[in-house]
Design a protein around this nucleic acid. Structure first.
Lengths: 207, 207
DNA sequence: TGTACATCAGTGAACGCGCGTTCACTGATGTAC
DNA sequence: TGTACATCAGTGAACGCGCGTTCACTGATGTAC
């Protein structure tokens, strides 16, 4: 591919548009995001995206899909560096959750707090579902440990598991959202290193 | 005041605009919110708001300020109906927090997840600060109960209190945000009554 | 009590802007024969 | 290997729209004397 004179055809504009859209999102925020800005960023006329994505929601859905994939990986990164007992693994997941949000606040908000994506889209549903399944898996593991003989069974147990999942998800998500929003000064103003320690400490308190 | 022929002067347009802005917010969401829409809703020309609010941020700051006042009152409502021990009071506050968010999702997002308000505004800072102070107060009370002789003191104790506050705030906020966003199906799909019970149960698990 | 005048609140037309979308087009690529 | 043609990807001008803001204005109110 000639890198000096730009070829008329891009090669992989669809992927380039997703990259550009994420940049645009990071710089302009969800409000202020525009298709024309994305096209400009990708070095392409503003009418070009229409050939690859139906509309803005389609593009942002693709961005969110890739966001969830990275979100899942980021949590796995943190798990790998943690102790292998279920509790440490879950705390590490939570830390990954919050760190991801702080690293990519606009993307995080797109993924969790926006009407601009289509969660009925199969790809997005799958990648977001993976994140949820991971969470449930690790909570279930935590509950197994030390409870080798199951004391509860059937639907009672399921409901209790779901409440347990909700509690842990809520702490991680609440920390993430409050930090991204700039509330929680008591943690938000710490240096990067101390911030992570404080977050882990709060998570450990609940998990 | 003549109610048949509209008087040229409104009487209290500033307050009417805040009302209208909250309606607009509820119906259109933060995205889709416009000053012109608010003016129309208040039955006034679209240039009129400029006489009362510098710009959109000024108006939304007033909306958020009133939002926090109602937020604080809603939590107090729930506390009044709860047992008087510190733990029950804190769970009730949390339930009020989450219920408020579900009752006014767009307002909740304006208050907690938006760049469109000015938190340096004295009124907004005061009303948001009141909500935070209430939280700290009730967490501190919880820590007093059963620990009449203080085992920790000085800055160590302060840091620990702040972590405790962060944990409890995060669960309530996380539940609220996830429910508003339509995640957390396991709770979100329940009837109103069961939903509150489930939320209280999750809060009690952590608090 | 009446008059003159300053101040204030709301009007409505006009502005420039960036947006998403449409459309006829053109350049590049791939395939059939 | 070469030619004809269909298909695909990207262009750029044009559109209509709703937005926030500005501005000269007018109607209502309050105050000084």
């Amino acid at each position: 591919m000639d890198t000096v004179t730009r070829p008329y055809h891009h090669g992989d504009l669809a992927a380039a548009l997703v990259d550009a859209a994420e940049e645009e999102l990071t710089e302009k925020g969800i409000e202020g995001f525009s298709l024309r800005g994305v096209a400009k960023r990708a070095g392409v006329s503003h009418a070009a995206p229409a050939h690859h994505f139906v509309d803005m929601q389609g593009l942002l859905t693709a961005v969110a899909t890739r966001g969830f994939e990275r979100f899942v990986r980021r949590q796995a990164d943190f798990r790998r560096r943690a102790d292998s007992d279920a509790r440490s693994q879950l705390v590490a997941s939570g830390l990954g959750y919050v760190v991801f949000a702080m690293e990519s606040p606009a993307l995080f908000r797109l993924m969790f707090g926006s009407n601009r994506t289509n969660f009925k889209n199969a790809d997005l549903a799958r990648s977001a579902g993976k994140a949820y399944d991971d969470l449930v898996h690790h909570v279930a593991k935590l509950r197994m440990e030390g409870h080798s003989q199951h004391e509860l069974h059937g639907s009672t147990r399921d409901v209790d598991l779901m409440r347990h999942v909700a509690a842990i998800w809520a702490v991680a998500h609440g920390l993430a959202d409050l930090l991204v929003a700039g509330r929680l000064d008591s943690i938000g103003t710490l240096s990067a290193k101390l911030k992570r320690e404080a977050i882990a400490e709060v998570l450990r308190r609940v998990i």
